[in-house]
Structure formats: C-alpha cells, structure tokens
Design a protein around this nucleic acid. Sequence first.
DNA 1: TACTATTTTTAGCCTAATCTAAAAAATATT
DNA 2: AATATTTTTTAGATTAGGCTAAAAATAGTA
Lengths: 223, 223
Amino acid sequence: MNPISKAEENHLKAIFNLCEETGKRASTNAIAKIMQTKAASVTAMIIRLSGKEIPLVNHQKHKGVRLTEAGKKLATNLIRKHRLWETFLVEKLNFSWDEVHEIAEELEHIKAEKLIDRLDEFLGRPKFDPHGDPIPDADGNFTFRKQILLTDLAENQAAVVVGVLDDSPSFLQYLNKLKLVLGSKVQILERVEYDGSNRILLNDQQEQVLTNKVCQNLYVKTL
Amino acid sequence: MNPISKAEENHLKAIFNLCEETGKRASTNAIAKIMQTKAASVTAMIIRLSGKEIPLVNHQKHKGVRLTEAGKKLATNLIRKHRLWETFLVEKLNFSWDEVHEIAEELEHIKAEKLIDRLDEFLGRPKFDPHGDPIPDADGNFTFRKQILLTDLAENQAAVVVGVLDDSPSFLQYLNKLKLVLGSKVQILERVEYDGSNRILLNDQQEQVLTNKVCQNLYVKTL
DNA sequence: TACTATTTTTAGCCTAATCTAAAAAATATT
DNA sequence: AATATTTTTTAGATTAGGCTAAAAATAGTA
C-alpha cells in the first residue's frame, strides 16, 4: 500500500546484486553484511518484502531469498537511477569517479520518474556509467558489450579500458594516479612470471607495470 | 548525535517560514497544519529539537517556538538547496515552474555539501530561483531587491515581473496560460473600480485583464 | 469576572526498522 | 551417524515519528 521505503529498496538492491554475482538465492548473512545490519533484521525485512500484496521477494525458510519479477523491476530501476546520477555527477558537476558512489546512493531513492527520464535525456541517454557499468534503459534492459578482464588479454593485443570490476574509491584513486582511465589504450608487453607483474604499454606512449590484482579488476575491449 | 532527519528538517523549515511571515513565534497548530500532522506530534518534535546538544529551537510551553541560530542556519541551508534544485530542474531539465516544488522537496534533503557547491557553480551561482525567490549563498545571506506587489504599482508606471507570492501550481499554471512569466513587462493601464479588475499592457503589445487577486500575488520591479 | 472555546500538552498506543539473546534448522566434522 | 559449528529464525526490547483522547493552560466573551 505505502510507497516502498529506502530500507526496503536497499535490501532489494543487495539481493539483486548477490543473486547476479552468485547465480544462487541470497543468504540472510550475506545480505546483512552488505546492509551493515544483523541477520535477524534481514529476516524481518524479508518477511515484510515477501508479505506485500505484490510480493517483491520469494522466501523459503532457511534456504535464502530471490527477487520476484516485481522485485527485479524495482531493483533494476534503482540501478538505473544510481548510474544515471553517477554519470551526472561526473559529466556535469566534475566529480571524479571515486567520489560519486556515496552521493548517488542517496539520490537513487528520489521517487519522481519524470525526473529520471529528463535526467537521462539531459545526459544524452548514456549506456554506461563513469565506471563502465551498463545503465539499464527505462524498461530494465542492459546493454552488453564483449569485454574481458585485462588478465585474459593476449600478449601484444591492443585493447581499451572500458570498465572496472572493483569500484572502491581506493582502487579508483590509484588508477587516477596511473592516469589510467576509461578509454585508455592498453597492450600487454610481457607477463613477468617472477613477481606476477605485467609490463603494459599505455596509450602507445609510456610503459607501466601493473600487478595481477590490478589487471584482474580492469575490463578491456580488444580493438 | 545522529545526523538531522528529514522530519526534523521539515519542521525547522516550517518554523522558519512561519516566523518570517508573522514575525512571531510559531504556534504548534500552525506548524501541524503545514506538516500535515497533528498538534501532539508537533509538540513531541519540538521537544526533540529543543533537547539536542545544540538546541535547534527555543520552546516556551504554550507560547510557541522560534529557531535558535543553529536552527536558522540549518533552515536557511535547506532553502538554499531547495531553490538551487528548483533552478536546476527548470534551467537544465526543462521542467516548468509549476512542477518543480514537489521534486525539490525531496532533493533538498540530500546531505552532501560538496554536491550543492558544485550544483551552485554549475548553475552559475544564481541569485533567484524560478519563482523569483532569492537563493541564499553558502553563508546564508539572501539577496534583496526592491520589489513591490503589482497591486501597489502606480498607473502607467512600467515594470517587470520578478517573482510570485503564491507559488501554488494552480496559480503558476494560470500565469503560463496568460504567457505571463518572470521578466514579462507590465504596465497598469486602468484600475477598474466596478469589478476590481485591472487593465494591463503586457510586453508593450497585448492588453490583458488581471483580477486584484492575481495582482496581489505578483512581484514587480519598476523600470 | 466567570464561563466557554481554543490551543497546547500529556499519556498511552502503533508501526517501521533496528537490536540482542536464545532456539531451531542446516551444514560440516570427526 | 553423532556431534559440533554455523546459519537462520523467533522472541522480546528499543527508538523515531506518527496517532487519539483527555487534561491543562491560554484566550475570548457574556
């Protein structure tokens, strides 16, 4: 009956992300960890979400939870809003990609659909956000792109950075320092067995050493 | 200790507006009317606000309430955020001036100060919002402007519309129909005693009849 | 002034969303 | 398989922010 609350929305998002990542039903504990609450609170929330006139989650006692179609619709729309706001913050307000997550986390709960439509239009209906993640359209459809992790790129194969797997501020700030941004051209010159490092040619100019950990968190698209 | 809540913020805003309008302490009933709650709830909220480490309101039992300096600071900042968002919605997202209040009502509660600074900059540090109301700067200072109500304009004196007193959607939509917007040039040709109407010259072109009620809600600045 | 009407406060209840502690179920380990 | 560990749920409490109904204070009027 009441409009969906911020807490409810955040739970849906957590469940959506967990199910996407693992391909399985989301566990109470895992949700609690993301939400920074306790398992008991999650159970209570799940019961509320599954008890709605139109249930948003499907719950089997002790067997985890998954979203119903209605729940997925809502979660996808939240992701859409989050990523559009992040794009706005970077493109229009000159925030850097490591600063926008927290603010978008608040903005995504603004309800007015017309606002999001207009924002989308204002931004030129972008398909990807500042971290290279796809922005679902108003119907919830994501744009896919054949991208691989830099780890999996063949030696000497030229590619462009199109996204990050880890979007934590610390990783993003490190990339800033390396001047490694979305659109940067990369090519693996050599995989060094000795220390698991990788000699990279960046933008056809400078040579750069990246650890495997970094390469495992960068999505690239071959040219 | 906790950050101030949306409900608390809205009460502060209501108290601020009431005190500005009346010049007196705000009454419990008046606040309840604005907040669409009951007097008892307002009393409870007032007690909370006045009981903070740094009290936000000054309450004397049965004698109404007024904001402390800390409360004023917060209320002013809310008004700043509200008016900046309204400006954004009209200037950048092409909303019309009658649509923006509700959405700004939500956006104003977003906490990040940096966001507002950047938004202000993006908009070119505007001094007035789409309804002609002044936007306080980051220190809470309003820009004043010598403006009078259209009712008080001398006959044949040329002036420009700079704001509205009533900013309800219905009034704003009516003005839209009359093609009477901020910046429109107006001149009173004749005050008709008979029915309290006013013959106006609009933009040096067309003649228009406005009732006193409309004239009482339009701010103009003489040329 | 004394009575009436209005306004404000108090008292007690309710729901959403959290918590802790304990019970129950599922999973893992000898 | 029996037991130990982990996970999930239940039970009961708390806090914010609302409500209603009744009591108390203030204001208005005969």
